[in-house]
Amino acid sequence: MERPLTDYQTNTLQSETATGERISTLERVQKISPNLWKATLAVVRKDLTAELRSRELLSAMLVFALLVVLIFNFALDLQPRLRVTVTPGVLWVTFIFAGTLGLNRSMAMEKDRGCLDGLLLAPVDRSAIFFGKAIGNLIFMLLIEVIVLPVYSVLYNINLFNPGLLLVILLGSLGYVAVGTLLSTMAVQTRTRDMLLPILLFPLTIPVVIAAVKATTGFLEGWTFPEIQVWLNLLVVYDVIFISVAFMFFDAIVEE
């Protein structure tokens, strides 16, 4: 676990240009943007490498997601007739619960191993850390979704391979992960930690749940595009707002 981090730290140290002169924010953004991109990728790579070695996060998320589907099977008695109307709800509850698990774990690991402090000490823009963690979390969540979808299709004999549905899943997960990354950074710094994340996260992500479930229903039931578009628009609006807001507030959350 140590090696990727040090790699990353030296990388960013070397690519940091030490200019003492005062520069405007815009210039600063322009100057650091290649570095920002590089640093973001470095954070993502670090997360992926660590995960490839231990696989504890993905396996936990996956088993958890499958268990949720299993529990829904018995709790709702998913009969063929009911399936299409219930499927979007079941899928999104599964994704969201598994997502919370992943978000919690990924931040808690950083905190426990002291990596978060290491990251924050690295001479790199904080936004790179935010985007890096968010992209990492998004990749994990999408991976789980990509595995759960075919399993669900096979189990319930429903064709879930619909490009529209994949778009909904991408948009929904994006907004969820953006807020989730910010809030999990907050939650790991409190006493109650793991318990707190869903409580903080769920009331803020209700629009995502509503829009994603509706759009999923739309694609599965073959609604006309304008009917679905309302919900897709809502998802896009939510994503844009919350990616920028989360990015804005991240500095305030990690500043010490």
């Binding site: 907050m186 009331p203 992500t205 807001v245 507030f249």
Partner: peptide, 9 residues
């Protein structure tokens, strides 16, 4: 930060 997130959402 959390009140502001709430205010926006």
């Amino acid at each position: 930060v959390y009140t502001l997130l709430g205010f926006i959402s």
